[in-house]
Design a protein around this nucleic acid. Structure first.
Lengths: 348, 348
DNA sequence: CTGAAAGCGCTAACAC
DNA sequence: GTGTTAGCGCTTTCAG
């Protein structure tokens, strides 16, 4: 009655070598694109690999590998709590990475300076096998990424993509969707009241912020035309700048019914909202479930938090980097980073 | 400038064997609780393992293992779309499982019949290594699970827990939180309008449904007292039963402003709502992002869908089952199944 | 009861 | 250019 699937006889390196009439080492060379094999042989082996549907066994590879693969995380410097969470998560996967014969380090570089970032990236060439970078989508950065890729380092973009570059993968949420979702929640939470809606972002130069803004404006314009959008305030993700800016906004806009915080600096926004005494009449939606955001949700100052799970992102970036390096298969479904919506009642 | 962490020198089976003054085979026997080792030796080896902080290398173990571990998924029979999705996802992990020297099969059994389920479970004894079961929390089922556990089969509960049993793990969302979240969204979406709120569930006997109901009632009572909860309708998760029941409800309750569908049978609910012509004035929240639910969301009939990702659940159940069998470490954070909130704007 | 030894499928020296 | 060979850390016969 219980029928277990019969073993599909996996084909091994050995099988490929035999079928191709060459040695293990040659197949290995071809598979890893290493030099020292005649072009004809390469093609022949490739064909056999294809025909036999050969897939390397990752466990065996891991076991046999001597050197550790080195991955470097390049994250924004500064006081951004979410970035600190990413940093922590990198340290948390270290034991797992060690088991995979890999190591990681985190380096913090100023995101708002594209050429510093680009220089840093290029400097990584030859010093590591993979780079996971959260940076600005800027021509200099793009060029730096392409340079790395040209020298066989696997590049994965994190949180904010650089789509025109030759990076192997992007790990992060769909930020246009995130903006649309924020608009949807904000619009529905505000209800039938009319009024204005403020927007605070780090900078238009940050692709993730720009995408969220785009999605947000799109939905607000079409679905909630009775709410008027105020021009976005750029606060460089710093509470020291968002706080006075929002305070001024609150003073000026007496009909403010909603506020969308696209980036960081939420501590400042929360302070301004609380001090105004109008926190409960203003629907505030922000991103990333930091300890402060959680507290704001619990106290009712924030109405919803749209989150991307730092742990999932870091683990996914590592898996993708290693898988790309070793030619393993990835389950795309498993690597899709979902956008979490947190209300007071479903805080984890 | 780049400092990569130095290799923490892993201790291997060899090290343990040498330190304990026994052979590899003996350590292996102790580690796997196999018979044929003197009690004194067992204790000694255990102590050394402890002292050296030995952790087996899963890749090496996988590689060396001859036989495949067999896992059986026991899912509800019937026409539940979400269950079909789980079933599909099991088939989707088969290649991955094969790589891990494991196989899986799905068996569908009537959930609403505890003793049929219990009998089936007990019958699995000796025929597999792990059982993943989505079933009713009923004394007979609990006893059957305990019986399996007593015979060394790893049991993982899926979607709906049987917490009083000795199952190794539960994979699923926190259903009380899910109910609370539904209430929160429903209350906020309804806004200031007063009226009544209907509830449709499969059966109070299903623990996940009961937990959702509990969470929902909790938040509705305390946060939205202007909305009156109608007594839950039990529709056995069948559209053939939910449709007439909801039609009657709509006819009777002219002041209905919200509807919470806790379980399945949503096709019937949607049909009744649409036929009534009041779909856009009633906030409808349901569970599980099936193709129909997605369509209902897009057409505006459903206002929010609370989801648990079938793929994540199946993969997590497999990882946990295998890890438990081999004594591997699991990352609890990675195995937590999150509750997804879907609105029209963040459909994946 | 316990130990020796043969692999699992791959990588990486080193030899030809 | 290409082949041989010695392991990686564990499981699993098979001998004692």
């Amino acid at each position: 009655m219980i029928v277990l699937m019969s073993d599909p006889p996996r084909t091994s390196l050995h099988d490929v070598a035999r079928a191709a009439g060459v040695s293990l080492a040659t197949v290995d060379r071809v598979l890893h694109g290493r030099a020292g094999v005649r072009e004809r042989t390469v093609e022949h082996v490739r064909a056999v690999v294809e025909r036999l549907g050969y897939r390397p066994d990752p466990a065996a590879a891991r076991l046999a590998r001597k050197s550790r693969t080195r991955v470097v995380f390049v994250l924004p410097s500064g006081t951004n709590t979410f970035v600190d969470m990413l940093d922590k998560q990198v340290h948390a996967v270290l034991p797992w990475l060690a088991e995979q014969r890999a190591t990681a380090v985190v380096q913090r570089v100023d995101v708002f300076s594209p050429d510093a970032l680009a220089r840093h990236l290029v400097g990584l060439r030859g010093r590591c096998d993979a780079v996971v970078v959260m940076g600005q989508d800027h021509p200099l950065v793009r060029a730096a990424i392409d340079e790395l890729v040209a020298h066989d380092v696997v590049v994965v973009t994190l949180v904010s993509d650089v789509p025109s570059s030759r990076r192997a993968r992007f790990v992060g949420i769909d930020n246009v969707t995130a903006g649309r979702t924020a608009a949807s929640l904000l619009g529905r939470f505000v209800g039938s009241r009319a009024g204005s809606v403020g927007i605070v972002m780090g900078s238009r130069a940050l692709r993730d912020h720009a995408e969220r803004l785009f999605g947000f404006e799109q939905v607000m314009a079409t679905e909630y035309p009775h709410l008027s959008l105020l021009p976005p305030i750029e606060g460089q993700d710093l509470s020291a700048r968002t706080e006075p800016a929002v305070a001024k906004l609150l003073q000026r806009e007496t009909g403010l019914v909603g506020l969308y915080s696209i980036g960081a600096g939420n501590r400042g926004i929360q302070a301004a909202l609380e001090r105004s005494g109008r926190a409960d009449r203003i629907v505030w939606i922000c991103h990333e479930l930091t300890p402060q955001a959680r507290q704001a949700l619990l106290s009712g100052v924030a109405d919803a938090v749209i989150n991307q799970d730092a742990g999932h992102e870091v683990r996914s970036a590592c898996r993708l980097a290693l898988a790309t390096l070793s030619g393993e298969r990835v389950l795309p479904d498993q690597e899709r980073i979902r956008l979490d919506i947190f209300l007071r009642d479903n805080l984890p």
